[in-house]
Amino acid sequence: MPKIRFAAASSGKAIMLDSPRPGYPDRTVAASVVDEWIADMKRAGVGRLCCLLPSNQFEYYRADLLAAYRNAFGPSNVCWTEVEGYHLCDHATLERRILPFLHESEQIRNTG
C-alpha cells in the first residue's frame, strides 16, 4: 500500500495541505494506485481537492485522474487549474480560481 506524503502548506493553516500527485514519481500509474491515494486522503480527513497538475502529466494515468477525484470527492469539491511544476501560477489564475476555491473550503469547514 503506497504511503501518501502530505503536510500543512503553512503553520496554522490546516485548511490547506500539500501532497505529491498519486503515484509520484512514476510515469505509469495504475487506477488502483489512484484509488489507494484517494482512500488515504479521505482517511486523513481531506474533503476537497485543488489539483494543480499540468495537463501533460495526466498521460501518466491509466484512468481519468480528474474523473476519479470528482467521483470520490464530488464535482464541486474538486478544482483543477494547470500550473507548471515548480513554477508559480499567474495572478489571474490565483485570484479567479484557486483563492475562491480555498475561501469556499474555509467557509465549509467553519460551518460544518
Score class of each variant (00 low, 15 high):
Lys3Ile: 14
Phe6Asn: 09
Ala7Gly: 11
Ser11Arg: 09
Ser11Trp: 04
Gly12His: 10
Lys13Glu: 12
Ala14Leu: 14
Ala14Trp: 07
Ile15Val: 12
Leu17Tyr: 14
Leu17Met: 10
Asp18Asn: 11
Ser19Ile: 06
Ser19His: 00
Ser19Lys: 03
Pro20Glu: 05
Arg21Glu: 03
Pro22Ser: 09
Gly23His: 00
Asp26His: 13
Asp26Tyr: 13
Thr28Lys: 12
Val29Trp: 06
Val33Lys: 02
Asp35Cys: 08
Asp35Ala: 15
Asp35Gln: 13
Trp37Arg: 01
Ile38Ser: 04
Ala39Asn: 12
Asp40Arg: 13
Lys42Arg: 15
Arg43Trp: 02
Arg43Ile: 12
Arg43Lys: 15
Ala44Thr: 07
Gly45Lys: 14
Gly47Val: 11
Arg48Gln: 13
Leu52Cys: 04
Leu53Glu: 02
Ser55Cys: 08
Ser55Ala: 10
Asn56Pro: 12
Glu59Tyr: 01
Tyr60Arg: 15
Tyr61Thr: 01
Tyr61Glu: 03
Arg62His: 14
Asp64Ser: 08
Asp64Val: 06
Leu65Pro: 00
Ala67Phe: 10
Ala68Lys: 13
Tyr69Thr: 03
Asn71Trp: 12
Asn71Val: 05
Asn71Phe: 08
Ala72Tyr: 00
Phe73Gln: 06
Gly74Ser: 09
Ser76Tyr: 05
Trp80Ala: 10
Thr81Leu: 13
Glu84Ile: 11
Asp90Ser: 05
His91Glu: 12
His91Thr: 15
Ala92Asp: 15
Thr93Arg: 10
Glu95Thr: 07
Arg96Glu: 11
Arg97Phe: 05
Arg97Lys: 06
Ile98Gly: 03
Leu102Ser: 00
Glu104Asn: 04
Gln107Met: 03
Asn110Met: 08
